[in-house]
């Protein structure tokens, strides 16, 4: 589903965010990518959604080599990947309903279908009564649920979560992780970038550990060791 072949990401000042990284993630897996701040884990996430491009190596998503993806093809790629951000990245001038609907609107879904799907997804994430609220009227946990709803609404095969619990308290963070697990159980491949040891240890799922841009460990039932 996701393949990194000897991927290096360098910047003009000579720093390497990622060096010779190779791994492969199979469909239906739940993988945590861990590492300290600046280790290069967010770079992995950015390479997956073509927010950045590899300096060397090859990135393949769902059989599609996106290493040299054309600019106009990027929206097509991003519509196939659900993304959950640490800072939520919600459209502040849109309501909860409109934020979730936006994920479908960019795909060209008809208003009739949107009106049918959005309430269902809001129900799954437990926000059925908050459809007309604006993001600023919600708690951090609720905002993250809106983001998850938006990322799921077009039924992506991959869900990429970059520090999804970074801005949340422990209880809320656990609720979000439970939600991600539920999504994974329904067949979606989940890639979670995190530096939260408690969550990684609790999951008992595959862990890829990155340090100074290099993959130093890749364990099937791993835990957070740094």
């Amino acid at each position: 589903m996701i393949e990194f072949h000897n991927v290096t990401k360098s910047y003009p000042d000579g720093t390497h965010a990622l060096q010779n990284a190779s791994f492969s993630i199979e469909p239906g897996e739940f993988v945590s990518i861990v590492g300290q701040s600046g280790a290069g884990k967010t770079t992995v996430a950015r390479l997956i959604i073509a927010e950045e491009f590899a300096s060397k190596g090859k990135v393949v998503i769902g059989g599609w080599d996106i290493t040299n993806i054309k600019h106009r093809q990027i929206p097509v790629l991003r519509r196939q990947i659900g993304v959950v951000f640490q800072d939520f990245k919600l459209l502040q001038r849109k309501t909860v309903y409109e934020n979730v609907a936006f994920g479908l609107e960019v795909c060209g879904t008809t208003p009739e279908k949107i009106a049918k799907i959005v309430p269902q997804v809001l129900k799954i994430v437990g926000l059925q009564g908050k459809a007309e609220k604006f993001p600023e009227q919600l708690s951090g946990g609720e905002q993250q649920r809106v983001v998850i709803a938006r990322s799921l609404v077009h039924r992506p095969k991959i869900l990429l979560a970059d520090e999804p619990t970074g801005n949340l308290d422990t209880i809320t963070a656990n609720e979000i992780i439970d939600l991600l697990l539920k999504i994974n159980q329904l067949g979606t491949t989940v890639v979670m970038v995190t530096h939260n040891p408690d969550i990684v240890n609790r999951l008992q799922k595959r862990v890829i550990t990155i340090e100074k841009g290099k993959i130093i460990a890749d364990k099937q039932k791993g835990s957070y060791h740094l």
Binding site: P75, K89, R93, V106, R150
Partner: peptide
């Protein structure tokens, strides 16, 4: 910021 978010969610430039 919203334009950036729209792009990350998969919106095309013309959209």
């Amino acid at each position: 910021e919203e334009i950036g978010i729209m792009k990350l969610v998969g919106a095309t430039n013309s959209f």
